[in-house]
């Protein structure tokens, strides 16, 4: 393909809270460059065509997790989504599903920010070692056990892809549960019990019906669906244990 092969249409969802009662569509034509991503196209629109268009981005390299949008109906990082893959277009660009829209392509992720600390995504120790005793050591195998789940960039694509979260906003959701699993699997952590108390609730892991779409859209191969199913096994084991064993043996 030549460097520039004409133009491609962008069909962008717009919502201006001060004037619009609901979102509408606006069409833009942008140059179809082989190396351009959807985010590049949006920046082109903002810089050259329509400075009122609002969207979030920062790193342009799949690290910050702020550029997530629904592209042709699928949640994606727009900085890693190439225009050429959607030729001849037009490409539909919408704010991430399942979140309230603040303006144009910007969504309000407060709900996730409220939920995240509930799963205690930090290392919990029964007793902290003193600094003099040195660091907590970890073998490469112990690191491998949780590394995949630690790659999450909080991009919220998995929440946008999850119909359970869309229908029941109380559901803790994929990334938060994957992060709980990340700390549970960390050899330095002793907080599994505390996290289970939160996740064993109906809005915890049992809300998930294993659609699996979260794993499919995750740009970092975190596999939140896998984390949730493993958590279910763990929760079920604990429930059976609680039923069968006397208190002291648990």
């Amino acid at each position: 393909m030549p460097d520039e092969a004409g133009t491609i249409g962008l069909r962008v969802a717009r919502y201006r809270p001060d004037t619009d009662s609901e979102p509408g569509w606006q069409e833009y034509d942008v140059p179809l460059r082989r190396e351009w991503t959807v985010l590049d196209a949006l920046n082109h629109v903002k810089n050259e065509v329509d400075p009122t268009l609002s969207f979030r981005w920062s790193c342009r390299m799949g690290i910050c997790g702020s550029c997530g949008m629904d592209v042709d109906g699928t949640p994606r990082l727009t900085c890693g989504t190439f225009l050429a893959d959607f030729a001849p277009g037009p490409i539909r660009v919408e704010p991430l599903s399942n979140f309230p829209v603040v303006r144009d392509l910007v969504v309000d992720i407060d709900d996730f920010i409220q939920k995240l600390p509930r799963v205690k995504p930090w290392i919990i120790r029964d007793e902290e070692k003193s600094v003099d005793e040195g660091e907590y050591l970890q073998s490469p195998e112990e690191l491998d056990a949780y590394k995949q789940f630690s790659m999450c960039i909080n991009c919220m694509l998995c929440y946008a892809a999850c119909p359970v979260y869309g229908l029941d906003p109380d559901f803790v959701g994929p990334a938060a549960i994957a992060l709980a699993e990340r700390y549970d699997l960390d050899s330095r952590d002793q907080g599994a019990r505390e996290r289970l108390d939160v996740l064993i609730e109906h809005e915890g892991v049992w809300g998930c019906t294993f659609v699996g779409e979260c794993t499919r859209v995750c740009p970092k191969h975190v596999d939140p669906a896998g984390a949730i199913q493993r958590y279910k096994l763990k929760a079920a084991r604990e429930s059976v244990k609680a039923l069968l064993l006397p208190r002291g043996a648990r």
Partner: peptide
């Protein structure tokens, strides 16, 4: 977020027809 009028998009009863993976689910 306080003071901002956000828009909640309604979810259609037919959310599962449009996408193959949702339909299979």
């Amino acid at each position: 977020m306080n003071g901002v009028r956000t828009y909640r998009r309604p979810i259609s009863t037919w959310w599962w027809v449009g996408k193959r993976t949702y339909f299979v689910f």
